[in-house]
Structures are given as structure tokens and as C-alpha cells.
Design a protein around this nucleic acid. Structure first.
Lengths: 188, 188
DNA sequence: CTCTAATTTGAGTGTAGACTCAAATTAGGT
DNA sequence: ACCTAATTTGAGTCTACACTCAAATTAGAG
């Protein structure tokens, strides 16, 4: 019943290029480096094209940040059977396979922490979901006794992983994966 | 030999108010919330006064960031005899006693990680000095064998503390001190 | 091949924000 | 009380930046 995608192909491709450009600029220089000019240059379009596809620059940035949050889910299928090791491995894998999105996540999460808008709430909720999954995995492993105890320990383990992630943002030569594994060994 | 401070008192007081205003704005909303207008309103001056005392807005911001880095030194006297517990306690105390500077530090360190200017290098060097001090303390405690081993473990412990600090920036209700102590127990 | 919806353009508009500066004011020194 | 260095003012300037929009172009549908 619907039309084919044919006529919309150019728009879809342009949108993807704009999103890719914004993601790489965010990863490189944080929000400060993301001007319309920079997006246009990187994507190879003029500003009018951007507003044909997005309401505002902020809409594009939020799209990328949402993308990073969704990609950072250590248990996207929500099966709830992962071990702590599975979750830690997924965390590390995300940084290895999606370094740009990982950087976007870290930078946005911290600067979101300073903001009054919904960004902070969104990152906080995402963090709480992660803590819950880690805590569940810890309880299934028999290591922790009470839910409160598991939650506290999950906060610490995730805190360590996040701190090492920040360390990696400061210096990508830092051996994030090895340090993360070692931290998990000692905190599980 | 020199003149008294008398004639300069007004300038000194105004400078302090401008710095205090900038610090509180940085802690509240990160760099985004620090406009000249906001500084003027918070400090109770007009923009001309600011440029009588500082070369630029950036100069004020850098002053506050430098202040945060210096305040965050776990061993400012450089005596080199602290235990790991001493250093962890100093870290926690800084957050309890200087929450505004602590927030400024965390926010600036991460966003500095995205920048190309000297800020990232400055935070990296500061971090490396902290790692060295923690590693030295670990070796003195007899826990770690080699310097390399101590350095790795110091990176992990500081990573955990920093990650919990970021967690606290997202939500100041988070029990940072208790979590930090518990992380240190397991990572020392 | 024609039609036209979708897309692109880029000069132009409006504004937030950093910073300037001549004039006015303040207050310490004598 | 007078002098004047230091300080403050706030309207004004300049620019970077987000966004607009009429006209032109592209390319898929029929």
C-alpha cells in the first residue's frame, strides 16, 4: 500500500551523514565543538538541508546521545540471566567496538550531570537500570546476601568501570579493558 | 617598602566575588551556564568591572579550574609518608568539605578530556601524580610487589574513586563517602 | 519524456554573548 | 578638604552562531 522508499533515499542518506558527523564531532570535542558549520562541513551539506530533516541542532545532538545510551545497554535483550562477568565483558566490548559512542556517552553523562534539563534524569535512570542488572547478576551468583548489599556492591563495581572509562577518555592509550577486568575480579 | 593594600581593597574584594560567582556557576551548570551576564548577576558587578580585573572570561574559568586541581591534591605537603587510607580519606574529605570545587573538578576534568587545549594535559598530569602517590603508599604498605603492579592497582583504585565521584555529580544524594571507603577496602 | 515531490542551496536575519571604552564615581593618601 | 589612582558603569560594538526561506535542483513515479 505504501510508496517505496525510492523518493526518500536522498533524505535518508543525508540524515545518516548528518548523524554520523554529529557523533564524530561530539566524540572528538564534546558539545563545544558541535556547531552547525562543523556539522555541515563534516557531513558535506549546507545548513538548509539540516533544517529540512531536523527541527534544531539540539534535536540532532539528543538523537546521538539517545543512541549512545541505548547502545550502552549491557543486557539489551533484557533476558536477565547474565553473569557479572557477562555484563563486565559487554561493558568492555562496547568501548572496544564503539569507541565513538562510548566517548559520547561518557562526555554527555558527565556534562548532563551538570544540567538542569532532563538529560541528567535520563542518565541517572539509565545508571540505575545498570546497577539493578549488575545487582541481580550478583545475587544469582550467590556472592551477595541481600538486595541492598548487592546494590551497594553493584554501584561500586559500576563506579569503578565508569571511572576507568573516564580515565580512557582523558587518554585513549590507557589500558581500559585490562584495568576493567582486574577491577571486576576484585569487586565481584 | 610598598604601599599599603588600602587603595586596592575594592578591587581585591570584587575579584573575590567574581571568582566565587564563577565557581558556583561552574559547579551548578558546568561551562554552559557560565556567561558574563550570569557572572555579573551573581557577583553584583557590571561587565566593565570584570575586564578591569581579568583579561577574559576564559581567564576567570581557568583560575577556578586551577584552584580545583590544587585543592584536590591528596598530599599537598608532598611528605610522601601517607598510607593508602590517608589518601583515600583526604580524597573523601575534599568532597565533603569542598563540594563546589569537587564538582568543578569533575566536570572540568571530563570536559577537558574532550578538548584539544592544554586542559586535558593538565588533568592527565594531575591524575598521573595522584596515581604515583597512591602507588607509593601501596608499596610502603607492603601490599604490592613491583612498582608496575602498584601503579596498575593505584589506577584501579583511583578509577573507582573518580567513578563514584562522577556518580555523586549525577546525584548528590548518592552516599559517596561510604561507597568510596568500601571500594578502597576491596582494592587495597 | 514530463511532472512534481523531495531535497538542496546559501545569502540573509536575528540574537546571545564577549568585550570595549569614555565618563562617572569612589575612596585612600596627603 | 583636595587630589587623583583605582574602580565602576552600562550603552555600544562586533561576531559567532542557530535558523529561515525563496529559488533552484534532483531524481523517482508514471
Amino acid at each position: 500500500m505504501g510508496t517505496t522508499l525510492g523518493r526518500y533515499r536522498a533524505g535518508i542518506e543525508t540524515e545518516a551523514r548528518i548523524i554520523d558527523a554529529t557523533r564524530s564531532l561530539l566524540a572528538e570535542g564534546g558539545l563545544e565543538g558541535v556547531t552547525l558549520n562543523a556539522i555541515c562541513d563534516r557531513a558535506g551539506v549546507r545548513s538548509g538541508s539540516i533544517y529540512n530533516l531536523f527541527d534544531s541542532k539540539e534535536a540532532i545532538v539528543l538523537h546521538v546521545v539517545r543512541e549512545a545510551i541505548e547502545a550502552f545497554d549491557p543486557d539489551p535483550m533484557g533476558e536477565g540471566t547474565d553473569t557479572v562477568d557477562d555484563l563486565v565483558s559487554a561493558y568492555i566490548r562496547f568501548f572496544e567496538e564503539e569507541p565513538q559512542l562510548a566517548r559520547v556517552y561518557v562526555l554527555a553523562a558527565v556534562s548532563g550531570g551538570a544540567s538542569a534539563n532532563g538529560a541528567r534524569q535520563r542518565f541517572l535512570r539509565h545508571h540505575e537500570r545498570r546497577v539493578e542488572r549488575f545487582a541481580d547478576a550478583m545475587q544469582r551468583s550467590g556472592r551477595s546476601v541481600s538486595p541492598a548489599e548487592a546494590t551497594q556492591q553493584a554501584e561500586i563495581l559500576l563506579g569503578a568501570l565508569d571511572g576507568l572509562a573516564v580515565r580512557w577518555v582523558l587518554d585513549t592509550d590507557f589500558a581500559f579493558a585490562a584495568s576493567a577486568k582486574r577491577a571486576a575480579e576484585q569487586l565481584s
